[in-house]
């Protein structure tokens, strides 16, 4: 048995995989990597299946010491990556050995780093996933973010991956701003006037400091609601409706001027009007958007959303073939 010694946990580093879907009806959000594409790529680079436990680090990378020979890969946000102080390539399978130390400098683009290790971070599986859901303290490493001096258990590494293999530039995401988030309008967009909906789509929204794995709170415009008689069971705010289930990625509008995009660790239902839902593929993008940056919602339809999802799956297959085919 071998492990990783955490010298510094960073700001908010958690064990994630592709999530814990299937329990939404009991109020359990999926958790999982915010940028599923980058997480999948990192795992494939080190010979793991995409849905293997890995680390997601927000804003500040951790400092990690290895205790045996592994392949590691860093994807997602852009930062200089070092092993024992020497620069190594991101989006590339890098060999490490006992007492090697992985470190990061400040992020220059994106918000979340993914760190995969051959064999995976082998924390216990909870409800089918190794993902951490910190609000209730389940899954991952003791249900919490990493702290200095933690020791992370590793699984047994396979032999498929090879050091030096990398994901071609053309298959790495770009983080231009504003982040364009394709959005399906509904379920409660009827609460907005035509002008309110237009403002919603025309505004370049700024990400506030209150942006994390639960949701991103935005500012930049004020949306006009239609007049109505308050329905039985709904609150008095114009943005209140009778409780409904919130899709992952849905955008609720408390007060009409602070939209919140609900993400992987969000509450599963409530009484705020949701005016649209960010499509699954573009949730990878918002997961890489930082406090202070801007986003724009672009209206799209379900066919486009499903096509985008198939294309993402195809890109992941392309990475898999490129890594195993030569």
């Amino acid at each position: 048995m071998s492990d990783i010694r955490v010298h510094a946990g960073g700001l908010f580093t958690t064990v994630q995989d592709l999530g814990r879907p299937g329990h939404y009806r009991i109020g359990m959000p999926p958790s999982g990597a915010m940028d599923q594409y980058s997480a999948s790529a990192a795992n494939l680079l080190v010979g793991n299946e995409p849905n293997t436990g890995l680390l997601e680090a927000t804003y500040i990378g951790p400092t990690l010491e290895f205790t045996d020979h592994r392949l590691i890969a860093v994807t997602g946000a852009t930062a200089s990556v070092t092993v024992n102080g020497e620069p190594v390539e991101a989006w590339t399978a890098v060999p490490v050995g006992p007492s090697d130390v992985l470190g990061f400098s400040m992020l220059t683009a994106g918000a979340r780093l993914y760190i995969a290790v051959s064999g995976g971070i082998d924390v216990p599986v909870y409800l089918g996933s190794r993902s951490t859901y910190t609000l209730t303290g389940i899954g991952g490493f003791d249900g919490r973010k990493l702290a200095d001096a933690d020791r992370l258990p590793l699984g047994e590494a396979g032999t498929r991956a090879r050091a030096g293999h990398s994901v071609p530039e053309s298959l790495r995401p770009e983080f231009g701003t504003p982040a364009e988030l394709r959005t399906i309008i509904g379920l409660c967009s009827y609460r907005l006037t035509e002008r309110g909906l237009k403002t919603f789509l025309d505004t370049e929204w700024k990400i506030t400091k209150d942006a994390n794995r639960v949701g991103y709170r935005l500012r930049g415009g004020s949306l006009e609601f239609t007049d109505r008689a308050q329905p039985f069971g709904a609150g008095s705010d114009p943005a209140n409706v009778v409780d409904l289930g919130y899709p992952v990625g849905s955008i609720q509008l408390p007060g009409g001027d602070e939209p919140i995009v609900l993400l992987n660790d969000a509450v599963t239902g409530g009484g705020y009007a949701t005016t649209g839902t960010v499509i699954s593929v573009d949730r990878d993008r918002i997961g890489q958007a930082k406090t202070g940056e801007t986003v724009r919602f672009v209206e799209t339809d379900l066919d486009t959303a499903l096509t985008a999802r198939r294309e993402r799956a195809a890109r992941i297959d392309t990475i898999r073939e490129a890594l195993t085919g030569n």
Partner: peptide, 9 residues
């Protein structure tokens, strides 16, 4: 001394 993260100072 630099900010390692975005936010309110």
């Amino acid at each position: 001394i630099k900010a390692g993260m975005p936010g309110i100072f």
